[in-house]
Simulated assay, not measured.
Amino acid sequence: MTGTTLKRIAPQLIILAVVLLLNFIVFPDFFSIRFQHGRMFGSVIDVFNRGAPTALLAIGMTLIIATKGIDLSVGAVMAIAGAVAASVVTTGAGWVPAVLAAMAAGLLCGLWNGLLVAIFRVQPIVATLVLMVAGRGVAQLITEGKIMTFLNPGLIHIGAGTVLGIPTPILLWIFMGITVTLIVRRTALGMLIEAIGINEISSRLAGINSRVLLVTVYLISGFCASLAGIVVAADIQGADANNAGLWMELDAILAVVIGGNSLLGGRFSIVASLLGALIIQSVNSVILLSGMPPEFNLVIKALLIIAILFIQSPAVKHAIYLFRASAEPTFKDEPVVKENGAEKESVS
């Protein structure tokens, strides 16, 4: 990780450290980790584990917001993916066909959103709102309006199993985060996405195929949402179309914004968004451990959104710029000194 990257994510690291410290103050055994029955246990492990769905959603949401878009349908796509996985596995098929079918459903949803935005030029908030409303209905049709349970060990392992003692969801979101980050930063894809977010018309004039890239980022978002849906369904060993992924799109957007990514598009950082997801889950944890009502969670998230939007507003940014400009020292002309009888102006 370069020095520039560390400087970029320094605020998120500080916020995460503060929130984790609050958890430690409320619950002194917060950082205690124990290994039992081949599995790691501990409150800090739970933060990384329970934050997996939000982290997965944040990966795709980061790319979409970088293009100056938004995806309000990720919660509904989670419900669809979970319903598809449960319905396939309950027919007697193995967990592999169930997972592949759920991923295909997520990609199909992403393709639908991408076509509406890129080809038919529907505003992203409207295009994804359609699937947000209709998608949950589709999930309810798949499950016939009831919670569809399953006992397939392979599928359950994705949400509740471990690999070398580490919960599988943690490894999944870390793997996806590293993979997507390498793809967008080791290739020109990240730069092209940022170019579209800054000015799509100029990027098209420069020869960038913005339509293909827009469809691609919505496909990635749909795929990440399907993974999150599989994790949630595997964790509860069932598909709950009514509650799976409910309001998760707001957590994903909040994670991206907490990560310092602008809603106006352009430069982005997936690592910062993942830290934002961990901050959200850490806030949830401190509220739970402190015994406060869960409703405080929604209030705190609302206050975080207001504070971040306030900081990102053009008026505040301009005021900060003027303050920095006024705080910078002014260099006056240095005195002229004589050297060997001749006048010589000192050079700074």
Rank of each mutant, 00 (worst) to 15 (best):
L131A: 04
P53L: 04
A76Q: 01
L63I: 12
V130H: 00
G238R: 00
T54E: 14
T168R: 02
L100D: 07
I183G: 08
S348Q: 09
W173D: 11
L322A: 10
F268Q: 08
V316G: 09
V215C: 03
T162D: 06
F41E: 09
V347H: 08
I64L: 01
P335N: 08
V88P: 13
V26N: 10
G197M: 07
A17C: 14
G222I: 01
V133D: 01
G38V: 11
L298W: 02
S348K: 12
L264G: 15
I142W: 09
I166N: 04
I308P: 06
L250T: 08
A233R: 00
V89N: 03
L57I: 11
H157L: 08
Q281Y: 04
M148R: 14
I33Q: 08
E200D: 14
L192P: 04
A81T: 04
I287R: 02
L155K: 03
T128D: 01
L108H: 05
A86T: 10
L22F: 12
T128Q: 00
L274K: 05
L172V: 13
G137S: 09
I166M: 07
P153H: 02
I64H: 00
E295K: 00
V19Q: 07
C224A: 11
R8T: 08
A127I: 00
A319L: 12
L278S: 03
I300Q: 03
F48P: 06
L63Q: 09
S221L: 01
T330V: 13
R136I: 01
V88T: 15
R186V: 06
M132P: 00
I201E: 15
M61K: 00
I174G: 04
K146W: 07
K338F: 13
V26K: 11
R186K: 15
V89E: 05
N113I: 01
A272G: 15
F150K: 05
T4W: 09
I166T: 10
L164G: 05
A76T: 03
I15V: 12
L322Y: 11
R34Y: 12
A319H: 13
G207Q: 11
A104V: 08
V336D: 13
V26G: 03
F30V: 06
K317D: 13
V232M: 00
K344N: 06
G238E: 03
P329A: 13
L254Q: 11
A188G: 06
L303R: 11
N340F: 12
A134Q: 13
M40S: 07
A118Q: 02
I9V: 15
A319F: 05
Y218M: 01
G341F: 13
A17L: 15
G177M: 05
R34F: 10
D251N: 09
L129V: 01
S348C: 10
P329R: 09
N297Y: 10
T162S: 10
A139K: 15
P28W: 08
N242Y: 08
N242E: 14
I25P: 01
V316S: 11
S285P: 04
N49R: 12
S285Y: 08
R211F: 06
V138W: 03
M148I: 14
L151S: 15
I59P: 04
T91W: 05
T162K: 04
C224E: 00
I15M: 10
A160K: 01
A160M: 03
V133A: 12
A234G: 06
V184Y: 05
G154N: 10
F48W: 11
A105K: 00
N284I: 02
A102S: 06
K7I: 07
A277D: 12
